[in-house]
């Protein structure tokens, strides 16, 4: 049964219904229905997500919402916050499913992949400048990062999900983010040491302002 009053509750009413040792069953059911509808819109164009998946995602999302309800700051609608939590749950599950059991050692990237950034810059001078910046970035990855930082950067570039990456590096998501942040700061410094300023880096992607 789909409950129709799910989004008419106030934040206080949601919290009153859910923030108890034994949450009110109507509130839990409303939350599950609301999350399932939202996730259905999120995955509307995905053929690899069926109704059974949506049920599972919604159920797991309800549990996650209840587990972290104390972190709701009250500066948004409760439903928006719960939906964000539900999306995190569902996306994490989908990324894990897509990634499978591949490990960091299995990462394989096609070497002949061409770059849109390169194709978008027919001017040989611009192309050369960007190639130089990319070469410097490769050198910085190889020489300026710790092995763990390099693994995080390369794993993230290959699309490896955070949960799997953290598991393989025997760390957690927050520590992984710090590793990635520290790596980015080192790479920026490494580029500067190789004669490239921040605008050069941006030009790799967006093109020079003088193009």
């Amino acid at each position: 049964m789909m409950h129709t009053h799910a989004i008419t509750r106030t934040n206080a009413q949601w919290l009153d219904g859910l923030q108890r040792p034994e949450p009110i069953s109507d509130a839990v059911a409303d939350l599950r229905d609301f999350l399932k509808r939202g996730l259905a819109r999120t995955f509307a164009d995905r053929r690899d997500v069926d109704d059974s998946d949506l049920d599972d995602f919604a159920q797991d999302a309800v549990l996650r919402v209840l587990n972290r309800i104390d972190s709701f700051r009250g500066d948004s609608r409760f439903t928006t916050w719960a939906l964000a939590v539900g999306i995190r749950v569902a996306m994490t599950a989908m990324r894990k499913r897509r990634w499978g059991d591949r490990s960091l050692d299995d990462l394989c990237i096609p070497q002949d992949a061409s770059s849109d950034a390169m194709r978008a810059a027919p001017d040989p001078v611009v192309v050369t400048a960007r190639q130089d910046a990319l070469t410097a970035l490769r050198a910085s990855i190889d020489n300026d990062l710790t092995p763990k930082q390099r693994a995080v950067v390369l794993g993230e570039l290959a699309g490896m999900p955070t949960a799997q990456l953290a598991e393989q590096l025997h760390t957690n998501a927050n520590a992984l983010y710090k590793l990635h942040h520290d790596a980015r700061l080192r790479l920026r410094a490494g580029l500067q040491q190789r004669g490239f300023c921040e605008s050069d880096v941006r030009d790799i992607v967006y093109g020079s302002s003088n193009d």
Binding site: S114, A117, L157
Partner: peptide, 16 residues
């Protein structure tokens, strides 16, 4: 693993 130019461009976007 050797990142592609496109991936390096994405990394550069993140660095910026």
């Amino acid at each position: 693993m050797e990142p592609t130019a496109a991936q390096l461009a994405e990394l550069a976007r993140q660095l910026a």
